[in-house]
Amino acid sequence: MITVEGKWYDGKRSAKTKVILKVFDNGAIEVELADTGEILLRQNRLDARISDRLADTPRFLTFSDGSILETDNNSSIDQLLQKMKIGNWMQKIHLLESKKRYIVAASLLVLLIGAGMVKYGFPIAAKAIAERLPESVFKIADRQTLEALDRIIFEPSGLSIDTQNRIHNHLQSVINAHPTFHITLLFRKGGKLGPNAFALPGGTIVFTDELIQLAKHDDELLGVMTHEIGHLVHQHAMRRIVQDSLLSFAILSLTGDASGISELFLSLPVVVTEMAYSREFEREADNYALNYMQSHEIPLDRFADILLRIDKSSKNQGKDKWTGYLSTHPPTPARVKAFREAGSQKN
């Protein structure tokens, strides 16, 4: 015989009655009042829904008239289920949740899947999505990004029309070599961004005045241009937007109902991972520039030279504190080295 102490609630009023459930060896059951032994219910065979085991939370036996028996005695209820050969797949879930080795295995699996998604899954998915987006999305993205940058950071270019035309003409060959990318070159005063160049998703490429002033030879700008076109060819900007959304979504669904405050802080791992993605993109763009310059016989040192000068100018402004893991670009010496070595091999 199995006996289970519990509390009885009839479902009509909130009154609590202490009871004892007795399950006899022949399968018959009795529910009797704990105080007086008066029989509340008698069944030839237990006819009740038994709630699933969940850690050590109370179990509820729901009888057909809507009354329930609530008990903390999980082991007796499990014994009862075993005896009556009642079972469902939820018992397997409880088994998973209660064995240490399963928990360790599950943690490792989740970690592995998570890392795999971040390293390979999201980039692949983002690439596939970016390739399938309609042309109009890229156009809208370009317009909105440029409008925002113009409002917040950029100022109209201070370069003379002559200078602008000279650079345009010098870069025309590389633009013409990529007719499908709708490349538009724009000049802006970069302000805080200093010497810099940007490739927006839809083919708009922005050079800052500071970059032009830093260049000592127009071929250096050609190098920068091919690097930016590398971003366009690999659709980096759009892939990055998609990747970031996927990543934020994944972190949110993992942590479930994140409150406002943790969302704020959870953006930290997102930012760090984004930067890792970004460095990968820079390497790809550098490779593209390297190949293009080599095949068009543009001296590779030109790109290395301007990279060094950009690096030096940002160091002078004291912006060098956040290199390495917290940088969007690979370290400049490594980039320069790649170009110098490729250049010297050729000679």
Binding site: L54, I93, A106, S107, V110, I113
Partner: peptide
């Protein structure tokens, strides 16, 4: 933690279908 990690793992493996059971188990806990 044990309930949560099993919830996460099964939700991923079942492509989100288990997440309904996961929610119930979380709330029930």
């Amino acid at each position: 933690f044990r309930i949560w990690i099993v919830n996460v793992l099964l939700s991923i493996i079942t492509l989100g279908i288990y997440s309904a059971w996961a929610k119930v188990r979380r709330k029930q806990y």
